[in-house]
């Protein structure tokens, strides 16, 4: 069972198939107008892309086209858009997960804290700073404690392991539910608990940014609500980027929302604005369900 955390040597990385290509050249059309990003923010962006383009299939299939955007620190940023629009591909560019997919090409830059993560940075270090939680909860077939400690130990952690376990589980809002059975198998947890354990495991390696690819789509509404509460709490310490098909979830928990279509960033703005007064007709059509 692969882990959900993109830790330096997490075994899941090779097993994560790339998302389906978003569009062929033949189906591509120019957006009605240029993409918007109307937010002028006080802080330096945590993650920034500059003219980022990405291809699968040795350059035959373009997935991202000239994306320039800024992710603000200590915010939840949601990526929405129809299947194949490139949102998962973009997310995976943020911690070089796409390096693991054969036949991909990239142009442009991805900066984390101003540093181009594709130039000098070691991809393993990048993934330690930029963790990832996947759609399906994927704990290791080990105890709850071992799930938390696994990545940290590999990264050379020599501190107080009990404290690390408690801190990670508390931050993921699952400590109260599991503190009396830390040595029990993680497989005994419910789906929602497993997903929060995976979040805790991501936190244990002390990332700055957490990427979440549809983290609640496999959960029931109650478990999803718990994870959403956790995300809202986590943004005080971390920068979170979430891909979701659930637009109500995006509007509930995100501070900024980016709408993508056919590899383009059509519009990115404050979530309240995007869901009440979108600038682009295509955004409005998508969020009101009249897309297509």
């Amino acid at each position: 069972m692969p882990p959900s955390v993109a830790a330096d040597d997490a075994p899941s990385e090779q097993q994560d198939a790339p998302p389906p290509p978003p569009a062929t050249e033949a189906t591509r059309r120019e957006p009605d107008t240029a993409p918007e990003q109307d937010r002028e923010r006080a802080q330096t962006p945590k993650v920034k892309t500059e003219n980022l383009s990405f291809w699968y299939d040795e350059g035959d299939t373009q997935a991202l086209d000239d994306i320039t955007m800024a992710i603000q620190p200590n915010e939840v940023t949601a990526f929405i858009g129809p299947s194949g629009c490139g949102k998962s591909t973009l997310l995976r560019c943020f911690n070089r997960m796409n390096d693991l997919v054969q036949g991909t090409q990239m142009e442009g830059r991805v900066l984390v804290d101003g540093e181009d993560i594709y130039q000098k940075a070691d991809p393993i270090m990048v993934r330690r700073r930029v963790g990832m939680v996947f759609q399906k909860p994927n704990p290791f077939p080990k105890s709850i404690r071992q799930n938390i400690l696994w990545g940290a130990r590999i990264n050379g952690f020599t501190g107080d392991e009990d404290a690390l376990v408690e801190r990670s589980l508390r931050q993921a809002a699952i400590w109260d539910e599991v503190n009396d059975r830390l040595d029990a198998s993680a497989y005994g947890l419910s789906g929602g608990q497993q997903q929060r354990l995976c979040i805790a495991r991501a936190l244990a390696v002390r990332p700055d940014v957490i990427l979440m690819d549809e983290p609640t789509s496999a959960l029931d509404p109650q478990a999803a609500a718990k994870v959403e509460e956790t995300i809202t709490e986590l943004k005080k310490r971390y920068t979170i980027v979430i891909v979701t098909h659930n637009m109500q979830q995006a509007s509930r928990i995100s501070d900024a929302t980016a709408f993508m279509y056919l590899g383009w960033l059509v519009e990115m703005s404050h979530t309240e604005k995007l869901f009440t007064r979108p600038e682009h007709q295509r955004t409005e059509d998508y969020i009101t369900g009249r897309f297509g």
Binding site: A34, P35, Q37, D38, Q43, P45, I67, T68, M69, A70
Partner: peptide, 12 residues
């Protein structure tokens, strides 16, 4: 504080 110029944020 120091706002990010829209020209830096905007895509093509």
């Amino acid at each position: 504080g120091d706002a990010i110029p829209p020209s830096q944020l905007a895509g093509k």
